[in-house]
Design a protein around this nucleic acid. Sequence first.
DNA 1: TGTATATATTGCAATTATGCCATATATACA
DNA 2: TGTATATATGGCATAATTGCAATATATACA
Lengths: 95, 95
Amino acid sequence: MNKIEKFKKKAEILKAMAHSTRLIVIDALKKGEKCVCELNDLVNADQSTLSRHLSVLKNAGIITDDKRGQNVFYKLRCPCVLDYIDCIEKVIKNR
Amino acid sequence: MNKIEKFKKKAEILKAMAHSTRLIVIDALKKGEKCVCELNDLVNADQSTLSRHLSVLKNAGIITDDKRGQNVFYKLRCPCVLDYIDCIEKVIKNR
DNA sequence: TGTATATATTGCAATTATGCCATATATACA
DNA sequence: TGTATATATGGCATAATTGCAATATATACA
């Protein structure tokens, strides 16, 4: 894989994170897994819309799902994505 | 500013980074400022396209510009954005 | 088996992002 | 002043993202 392809892959991950609803989900998962219904209470969006956001995060490899009974539980695959938010806040403060 | 607004602002920054050309620029600036002509040699895009990518990064507060003579030099405002690489690479490996 | 509940998917319209071309602006220098 | 060089901007076509409504699927439980 050449250099440009590598940057494209990284951009994909960032793009998957680059939405307020998806950031709310990532933030909510920092203390452990949550089912869709719990996440639904946190975000202000249609159930189908949240479901699509979750699939974006899942396809990017940021979260994983685990179906148990009627519920699907999501959790962060790499909690380091949360560290990144600190830097983003610094950017916001400095601009 | 309420919580959702804060997440929207963070998403803006991430979205500004979420493009391969803009990641190449950010990476190129890790060792210090560079003029547009130097960046133009690194990316595979029209000059006007690069210019527009630079304005996206600038508007997001990720880079600043400094015009000296005929050249415009860009540099990272918060080099911590480079830390994304380690975490993003971890996400890519784990998925 | 039938029904309720949780979650995912499809269709579609509206918005936003992207890229290139042409053109504008601003500086340097003859 | 005129010309070349560096960078930015406007216009426009194409593609991608977003959100909701409707529908599908899958599990639980009566």
